[in-house]
């Protein structure tokens, strides 16, 4: 199972890199989304996909799954959710102001002109 997950993480990272290197801003944002999903899945996989009872307090259960990675992933998902939302609004505003979503046309600063 871990082996399969590792391959999926690899695919996620590869497609994320491909999307981030493209020119369209929207694709880049989707790429960052995939990248964080890859990282979250990696976090779950690296800490071991153990089988056992849910990490919730109850009687007659002795073997629990490690609850920590789940807590970490939840935190990381929430953060990336917020950041992605912000990024989408930012991209929309940028598109309105600059009239383009092409990164090629967003080069340079005033001092380089």
């Amino acid at each position: 199972m871990e082996f399969l997950m590792c391959i999926i993480v690899g695919i996620l990272f590869a497609s994320a890199v491909y999307l981030i290197l493209s020119k369209s801003l929207l694709r880049i944002i989707i790429g960052t989304g995939l990248l964080s999903h890859g990282a979250h899945l990696l976090l779950l996989t690296m800490s071991g996909l153990k089988t056992g009872a849910a990490p919730v307090l109850s009687d007659n259960v002795t073997s629990y799954t490690d609850p920590l990675p789940q807590a970490l992933v939840l935190t990381a998902i929430v953060i990336s959710f917020g950041v992605t939302a912000f990024f989408l609004v930012l991209a929309y505003r940028t598109y309105q102001e600059l009239g383009t979503d092409n990164m090629e046309e967003m080069r340079g600063t005033e001092s380089h002109d």
Binding site: A85, V89, Y92
Partner: peptide
Amino acid sequence: GITMTIIQTIGES
């Protein structure tokens, strides 16, 4: 609050 703010910000524009 946060979810609705996000949805409204994207929706309103």
